[in-house]
Design a protein around this nucleic acid. Structure first.
Length: 495
DNA sequence: CCATATTTAAT
DNA sequence: TTAAATATG
């Protein structure tokens, strides 16, 4: 008798190794078929970035080959998962459909619909956590509430991760990365063809992969698609050979946008070509390489970035209203200027403030922006241009290769001072930020080649003589004037 | 053991 | 300013 067939539904876990849901399926039966559904509701949304379509398409193409090498098939469909998954499961004769859980309101509602449809057909559903080191339910404050403040969350998160690490294996609740499944069993070709006959199947085309993405910045983007590239990037970042621009030099290297001092793994973690447990394990293996207190501290700072990612995901899980706008009610009445001309100048990198324009051009050309610059341009849009941060949030989502609702919304709410974090106003002075983090003007000159001739001091301050500008715009606003205006408007909503 | 007041600390 | 931890009744 043939073994029971399971269907595994990939979503934001585009890898075979250390995929908890897939491993659970493979532990139950070797007869596992994979599926990914290209959902027009997501792909055609205005917030979908060409860079993400590129990353998704390339990662899927590699994942489909990996399934084949593991002995089975990854089916790629296009349409509504709630309609297609029951049909595919029926065609395959799958008894169980498994997937990894998500935190986003849209995904959770979709998953409920899919589960209801499958269960109505008498199929079992298996869904558990994979995309976080620590499941949202695992950490609560002393009062039993979800954490709203990063500091206490980080301490609690680290304690939990260290205790779970000590137990080792996944079976005993540990965090050791799992190997990929191998020796899977496929349906025989005729049976598979029959199961797929009436389904909207998508095959990778020779040139573009699964999707027409129209993204031209792949060469400039630091994020590499696919499971294999993610492993290589992680290993290179953690290896200790290039200490100043890697994990061991992460602090302060991570804050210098003109150097490649960050891991570039944001998109890999967003799409799950890399698991957070793999990232955590690599950081632990690098600890013996650290030869100074600074290098040990660098590892911890990177671990804290993994914790920020999980903090914002658990926040969205427990407070889905974050996705709709300001968490703090008084911010909902803020009298934004919302000048659409200023907003467009910001979005296209034409504000006349070099550090802002360099950062926005990096985003527009490469699909990625250095995190320090994300904070600087966010503060500028909100506190200098006095524009609703949700416009900036949407603009980031429309272009970022790693655009993720929880992280992007969390970052913008942090910058706008409207989030759960109880700290008062944060106003960055863009010139001070440029002076601290791009002191030689390296980053500015990289992305604003038309200003390469300008003295570094003027690139940082933004005070460029009209004859030196050569077509580069004059500053749109004056920081001193605008921050005073912002504070006056803020006073009207306080309390 | 609760509920409430006070203290502490926040990338 | 306010969440979280801790002290107090």
């Amino acid at each position: 008798m043939a073994p029971e067939r399971w269907l595994f539904w990939h979503r934001r876990d585009l890898r075979l190794a250390d995929n908890r849901g897939l491993a659970a399926a493979a532990a139950a039966t070797p007869a596992v078929t994979g599926v990914f559904v290209l959902d027009p509701a997501i792909l055609s949304d205005p917030s979908m970035a060409p860079a993400r379509l590129w990353f998704l398409s390339e990662s899927l193409r590699e994942l489909q080959q990996a399934w084949q090498q593991a002995g089975s098939t990854l089916v790629v469909l296009r349409g509504d998962p709630a309609e297609l998954l029951p049909r595919l499961a029926a065609g395959l004769g799958a008894a169980v459909v498994a997937w990894n859980r998500d935190v986003e309101p849209f995904g959770r509602e979709r998953d409920r619909r899919v589960a209801r449809a499958l269960q109505a057909d008498g199929r079992k559903v298996l869904a558990d956590w994979d995309q976080l080191l620590v499941a949202p339910e695992a950490l609560k404050t002393g009062a039993g509430d979800p954490y709203r403040v990063y500091g206490p969350y980080w301490r609690s998160w680290r304690r939990w991760v260290e205790e779970a690490s000590a137990t080792g294996t996944a079976a005993s609740g540990g965090l050791d990365p799992l190997p990929p499944p191998s020796a899977l069993i496929d349906l025989d070709p005729a049976q598979l063809a029959g199961a797929l006959a009436d389904l909207p199947l998508t095959n990778p085309e020779l040139k573009h992969g699964f999707l027409e993405h129209g993204f031209g910045g792949a060469e400039l983007c630091p994020c590499r698609p696919g499971e294999k590239a993610a492993q290589e990037q992680l290993a290179a970042f953690c290896d200790g050979d290039s200490r100043s621009i890697s994990l061991l030099g992460y602090e302060p290297g991570r804050n210098i946008p003109g150097e490649a001092g960050t891991s570039g793994l944001s998109a890999a973690l967003k799409f799950g070509t890399l698991s957070p447990r793999q990232a955590w394990a690599a950081a632990q293996q690098a600890r013996p390489l650290a030869r100074s207190e600074e290098e040990r501290y660098s590892i911890q700072v990177w671990e804290q970035e993994l914790a920020w990612r999980e903090f914002y995901q658990q926040a969205l899980f427990y407070f889905p209203e974050l996705a709709e706008g300001p968490y703090r009610p008084q911010w909902r009445a803020f009298p934004w200027d919302n000048d659409s001309g200023w907003f467009e100048a910001w979005r296209e990198g034409l504000t006349g403030m070099p550090i802002i324009d360099a950062a926005m051009r990096q985003l527009n050309e490469s699909g990625w922006m250095h995190n320090r610059c994300r904070m600087i341009v966010a503060s500028f849009l909100v506190k200098d241009l006095i524009c609703d941060w949700r416009w900036g949030e949407a603009a980031f989502m429309a272009r970022l290769v790693d655009g993720d609702l929880a992280a992007n919304n969390g970052g913008w709410q942090w910058s706008a001072s409207s989030g759960m974090d109880p700290k008062p106003l944060r106003i960055f002075n863009p010139a001070t930020q440029a002076g601290k983090f791009d002191p030689e003007g390296t980053y500015i000159r990289t992305w604003l080649p038309e200003l390469r001739h300008v003295a570094t001091r003027d690139l940082i301050s933004g005070e460029i003589a009209p004859l030196e500008r050569r077509g580069y715009p004059a500053p749109l606003v004056n920081h001193k004037v605008q921050q005073a205006r912002f504070k006056a408007l803020y006073a009207t909503i306080k309390g």
